[in-house]
């Protein structure tokens, strides 16, 4: 692709005489500082919050850290159908399926297949929520937990144990 035909136009305009007279803008700036000083110091109004003691309330449909929902028997709802892995645009989900041990399966044929491994690479995830939308079992969900910071890259690889933690009301 050649960029030879692209022209750049200078859109800056000449300063007016008021703007050139910097003396006027200096007291203007001081006034802004003074206003915020009074708001903060005397009226105790603030634009920031004291995280982590205070937290912002995000929207109900905020998409945060993934989890896999559990049923009443504490079995993960996931049946390893691979639909989330198929739909994921970032290719960050890796599933391995296996047959559930019939002894630990009170539900029968509906849960005969289970994920042996379910890994999400949170560093690669773009939090689009398509996995949640594709899931036919409402198994994979995104909680409202936005505290995703970790110490090592390995900790950002969510495995099945981490994903099937109990999350009430999407956190």
């Amino acid at each position: 692709m050649s960029t030879g035909n692209i022209k750049t136009t200078n859109v800056s305009r000449p300063y007016t005489w008021k703007e050139r007279l910097y003396l006027l803008t200096i007291p203007k700036g001081f006034l802004v500082t003074l206003r915020y000083f009074i708001r903060g110091f005397f009226l105790r109004k603030s634009n920031t919050i004291s995280y982590p003691e205070e937290r912002r309330n995000y929207s109900e449909r905020f998409r945060g850290m993934h989890f896999i929902s559990l049923d009443e028997n504490k079995l993960e709802n996931c049946t390893a159908c691979y639909l989330c892995q198929t739909v994921c645009p970032a290719k960050c989900i890796t599933i391995t399926a296996e047959e559930r041990d019939p002894k630990e399966n009170p539900v029968g044929v509906a849960k005969e297949k289970r994920p042996k491994a379910f890994d999400i690479d949170a560093l690669r995830c773009c939090f689009c929520g398509m996995c949640e939308e594709a899931c036919p079992k409402d198994a994979i969900k995104m909680s409202r937990n936005y505290e995703l910071a970790v110490h090592t890259r390995e900790m950002a690889m969510y495995d099945l144990k981490h994903l099937s933690r109990e999350v009430k009301n999407r956190g």
């Binding site: 049946t79 005969e112 036919p136």
Partner: peptide, 11 residues
């Protein structure tokens, strides 16, 4: 027919 395409290998 059961609606178990997520589990079914034929899907």
């Amino acid at each position: 027919h059961p609606l178990d395409c997520p589990v079914c290998d034929q899907a």
